[in-house]
Each structure stands twice: as structure tokens, then as C-alpha cells.
Design a protein around this nucleic acid. Structure first.
Lengths: 253, 253
DNA sequence: CGACTTCTTGAACCGAGTCAAGAAGGGTGG
DNA sequence: CCACCCTTCTTGACTCGGTTCAAGAAGTCG
């Protein structure tokens, strides 16, 4: 009920993927139809389930079309580090050659809906023109975006304070969600527990809580359930030295 | 004077690259010759110099054949985070499509020698057979390895203590250097200041020093100048929960 | 042999973690 | 629709890993 109506793009299960890919590189109507077709068959996994493991390798490339997941690694003693948060439009296990990032464990943070991306990787002989290179280009851009986010993540973990990390992450999420039309100005839904945020940011749960309290107290953000509002985006950008991944066009909205 | 003599591989400027690529995927003699040929012309950059910046994009793919460098990002207030340490055999700006990791700033930590990798990316029409796919495969493996190291780096920064981080990094370096034959059992040369280690590990210089002191006091490592000896590799592996990047064959030595 | 960088150490400080316990939410079944 | 349970959030008190500041020692290089 929060998502804005999609402009000139009929509301379909594939909307997030379409919007995402389109932002990476404008899709022709034919290619958009090809993506739409992926939505014909979808899968669902409950929160807490395993979406993909190393055994999947690159054999099951998919798009996340609903819900949130994460790429993660768990240490023997239970400590967990999350590599990336995955929201609708993100790819799972998608790559052209064996890539570690495409092969780590993926864990469902909420109930999650997926579609196979297989059809984008095979050259459809029954269609006119060579769509393969177009999708290859888009997929490469998507992989590049994932990598850019990973580099930001390294800086966040290595050289940012807790306060900066949180501001940076919130800005990153708002940027990513704006790509898929799930942001209303600076308000969006973030169905993540503080434990998840802690495992993303390399902090303890308690400290995540205190950091959020501080941002609220200073009227930089507002939190109501899983609704986040960035009240002072400019201030947050200054705090975190945030810059959206270049090379990737600014999202609409 | 420490490096072991190269087996059945004449000592050339390209040895580190040859050994590295060969470890990723065995090279035929023809392909090895093709790599050797890259060494015909080499470049040198002084310590502290800029090896590559974003402006280079992917236009100047190169191999580091001598000295050490790093991929890094510097924050506006001077804090620095190093993404990867680069030792001989590593690639710089090498990728098939725009990739952030191939486009970050590269900084020379010591005097550095480089060769162009251009010739591996173009299909040589004057040679029999298609060598292009072979190098494409090897380069993809090299990129995969870089990515695996980056994922380890994220875990190190996010969820390891200073002690674990240092142990993990030392094991990683010894593994990488063993690939290029620059390790004698568990002794190798690491020409890095403690400031550099701090910027890799997301710690302060002082704490890097204290962590190294502790490892020495406990007789787990020995440090003499830039010579490192891992006295108790097994103990270090336990401490850091270290596992060499899978998919990538164990190095010799 | 200077001059500079790097290393080392101590002391004080502080950001973040740990422990603990209570409050607030959110589902679920009766 | 409420009662219950379990998860998540919140807060205080204390601890501790890691930082900062500072100053002297040891390398290193021209």
C-alpha cells in the first residue's frame, strides 16, 4: 500500500526487475517483454530459509522479485557477516563465470519470491536479432553495481564509525529502493531487525539500537515499525560522505 | 636473495605472472610464450606514486611484475582504506567490462614494475588457433580470485578482532606469495609499513604494532625487518579460521 | 653522519561490546 | 477479540578492545 503506482509499466511481479534493469541500461520493448516472461513461474521461500548455497554454483541464476534476503558468511563460532542486502530486483547466483560473490550463501530475511533468470542467459534462436549481447551488457552492469556496493561496504566496515556506517547504509538503501520505485521521497520500508543491521554493519545489536536512537534524537531520521524516513538527507550525506555508485545513472523519483 | 630459484622456468621478469596464471589454469607452452612476450617492455613507478586512477578506466590493463602496490580509497578527512594488497603477478585495471574493483585508485607501496596486459586481450590473427578463450578463462579466474579475497576482507573487517585480522592477513599473504614462488616454507618478504597494515586491517598504527608484538611474544610469528616467518602456521589458521580461497588450486612449495 | 621515516611503549581516553532485565510488538490459537 | 508467547526493542551499568596523544628509540637512506 505504500509503493507508488508504476508509471507506464503495468504492475507485474517483474516490475522491480524491469525497473532495475531499465535503470542500468534502457530496455527496448522486446527485451522488456522477455524479462516479463520470466515472471510466468515464480518460487517462494519462507523467512529464515536458505535461498542458495555454494552447491548451487551458477546453475540457478535468479532474480529476487519480492521480499528481502542477504548474502552472508557465518563463522564457526556463530558470528555472522552480511556481504550484501538483497531487495527486489537484485540477482542471485548470476554471473558469466564462477564468481565468489555469486556463490556465497543467500539467506531469506523475509518471505521471498524468486524467478529464474536462466532464460536471459540462453540465446533464443526463435527471435529476430541477437538479444544476447544486450542482456550480457545489462547483466555486466548489474554485476558491476554489486561490486561497487561491496567496495563501499569495505570502507564502511574498515574506516567508518558506527554513526557513519548507519547513515551510509540508510542512504544506500534509499538509493537502491528508489531505482525500483519503492521510495516515496525519503520514506521507505526496511523490514530488517536490528540484529540484521548489526551483522551488515559489523556492530553489536545493542550498539545498532543506540546509534538509531541517536539519529532519531537528532531528528535526522524517523523510524516507525519498518518505515524509515530520512528527515535530513543532506546532513546524512555529509556525515557518511555518501555518494551513489557512479557509472550508474541516478535513480528516478 | 631470498627467493628460491625457479624450477624449469627460466628466471624472467614475467616469472611471477607466469607462475600465477599457471596456478589458475595450466598454460600451454604457446600461451606461456605469449605471456613472456609482455615482458619485452616494462614500466617503473616510484614508491608513493599513483599507478592507476579512475581516469584510466579499463584502458590500461597491466600486470604488476615487481614491487608492491594497493587498491585504495581515501576519505575526505584523510582516513584511508585499502581494498587489496597487490604483489607481483597481480593485475591492475584488468576486466572485460567496467568493474569498480578494476577502476579504483592504485598506489605504489614500493618501487613498482609493470607490464601492459593489452596483448592478452586482443585476438592475435597471426597465430594458429584461438588463444583468446584460453586467456579469457584465465583472466576470469584471476578476477574471481580477487573477488574471493575481497569477500574475506569484508569478514575480516566486519567480524574479526585485531588479533584474528592480523593472523588472517599474514596467512593470506603467505598463500598468495607461495603461488609465485616467493615463499620459503613459512618465511617471506613483506615490505609493508605498519601504517599500511593498519589501513588494510582498519586499525590504528599503534594497535597494529601491539598486535604484532603479541604474536611475536607468543612465538607465533617472527619479524626481522620485512622478513616474516610464520612459526606456528597451524595455530594461526585456528586463530583466524583461515581457509585459502577454494576453487583456486593450492599453491606449490 | 645527519635527517627523516618507522617502530615502540606508556598513559589516558573513549567507542563499542557484554550482560542483564524489562517493555513493546506481532503472531497464533483458543 | 483477547490472551499468551516469542521475538524484537530498549535501557542501564560495567567492561574491554582499540584509539589517541606523546615522546623516545631504532632504522634507513642520501
Amino acid at each position: 500500500m505504500i509503493a507508488k503506482p508504476m508509471f507506464q509499466m503495468q504492475t507485474s511481479i517483474m516490475s522491480p526487475v524491469l525497473r532495475r534493469l531499465n535503470a542500468l541500461s534502457p530496455l527496448t520493448p522486446q527485451h522488456a517483454r522477455r524479462v516479463e516472461a520470466l515472471g510466468f513461474k515464480s518460487d517462494t521461500i519462507a523467512a529464515g530459509g536458505c535461498v542458495a548455497g555454494p552447491q548451487d554454483g551458477l546453475s540457478r541464476p535468479r532474480f529476487l522479485v519480492g521480499g528481502w534476503a542477504c548474502r552472508q558468511r557465518v563463522l564457526p563460532d556463530g558470528r555472522r557477516q552480511i556481504f550484501s542486502l538483497l531487495s527486489p530486483g537484485d540477482s542471485i547466483g548470476l554471473a558469466f563465470s564462477p564468481r565468489p560473490l555469486a556463490m556465497v550463501d543467500v539467506f531469506a530475511l523475509t518471505r521471498v519470491t524468486l524467478v529464474s533468470a536462466d532464460a536471459l542467459l540462453v540465446d533464443p534462436i526463435d527471435e529476430i536479432g541477437p538479444p544476447q549481447p544486450v542482456f550480457a551488457d545489462i547483466i555486466n552492469r548489474a554485476l558491476g553495481l554489486d561490486e561497487a556496493l561491496l567496495l563501499d561496504h569495505v570502507v564502511r566496515l574498515g574506516r567508518h564509525t558506527a554513526y557513519e556506517r548507519m547513515a551510509h547504509l540508510l542512504l544506500e538503501l534509499r538509493w537502491r529502493l528508489s531505482m525500483i520505485g519503492q521510495v516515496d521521497a525519503y520514506r521507505f520500508t526496511m523490514p530488517l531487525t536490528q540484529e540484521i543491521l548489526a551483522d551488515v554493519l559489523g556492530l553489536s545489536i545493542v550498539h545498532v539500537n543506540r546509534t538509531l536512537q541517536q539519529l532519531r534524537r537528532e531528528r535526522l531520521i524517523e523510524l516507525a515499525g519498518s518505515q524509515v524516513t530520512l528527515l535530513e538527507p543532506g546532513a546524512l550525506i555529509d556525515i557518511a560522505d555518501y555518494r551513489p555508485p557512479l557509472e550508474f545513472a541516478a535513480a528516478s523519483d
